[in-house]
Simulated scan of single mutants.
Amino acid sequence: MRDDVFPGGLLLSPVRALAWDAPASVATLDVAALGDLFDLEPKPEFLLLGTGAGLLQPPRAFVRALEALDIGVEAMDSRAAARAWGVLRAEERWVVAALLPL
């Protein structure tokens, strides 16, 4: 088992995991900060957004931008998002995740 640490955050897709230089605050999050995370075929069902040590709501503009791409957003603290990722991927759900550091 590997115990990799991603101090700046982590981006997950069904095909890869990447270290992420996450924004300092959820409040400044925009779609561009996620790079090519959504460039998958088929398109992801939704984004699991881990907001760090506690639950913070993402900016409405961020949520609207993803909804315009037909991608939903589920925000939760990063620990809960990591657990949800494991459950959803075990069910073979096509989701992506952006986990801000704790």
Results as ranks from 00 to 15, higher is better:
V26A: 00
L40P: 12
P58Y: 05
R64F: 12
R83L: 10
E74K: 08
A68S: 15
G8N: 11
G50V: 05
P14N: 02
A81H: 05
V96Q: 03
F62I: 08
D39G: 08
D30M: 04
E67P: 09
L29M: 02
A32P: 04
V26F: 09
A97D: 03
D77I: 07
A61L: 10
A33W: 00
A65Q: 14
W20F: 10
W94F: 08
L29P: 00
E91P: 00
G86W: 00
D77Y: 07
D77M: 07
A81N: 06
L10C: 13
K43N: 10
L56D: 10
V95P: 00
A32I: 07
I71N: 14
M76Y: 05
L88T: 05
D70S: 15
A19H: 08
P58I: 01
L69E: 15
D39C: 10
S78Y: 06
G72L: 11
A80Q: 08
L34V: 04
P23L: 07
D21C: 07
L47T: 03
L34I: 04
L11Y: 03
P44H: 08
L88R: 07
D70V: 07
G54N: 11
E91N: 04
A53K: 07
V96L: 05
G50C: 09
A97C: 05
R16C: 01
V87E: 00
A90K: 04
L37E: 02
A22R: 09
A17V: 11
T28I: 03
P101M: 04
D3Q: 13
G8H: 14
L102N: 10
V95G: 00
R2A: 14
T28E: 14
E91R: 08
S78C: 03
L10F: 09
A90F: 01
V73S: 11
G86Q: 13
S78P: 08
A80E: 10
G9F: 10
L34E: 03
K43H: 13
L48T: 03
A82V: 04
L69C: 14
R16T: 02
V5G: 00
A84V: 11
L56M: 11
A80S: 15
L55F: 15
V96G: 05
F38Q: 11
L11Q: 10
G86Y: 01
G35Q: 01
A84D: 04
A27Q: 11
G54F: 14
A19G: 14
L56V: 13
D30A: 13
D3H: 12
L37D: 01
L66K: 10
R16G: 01
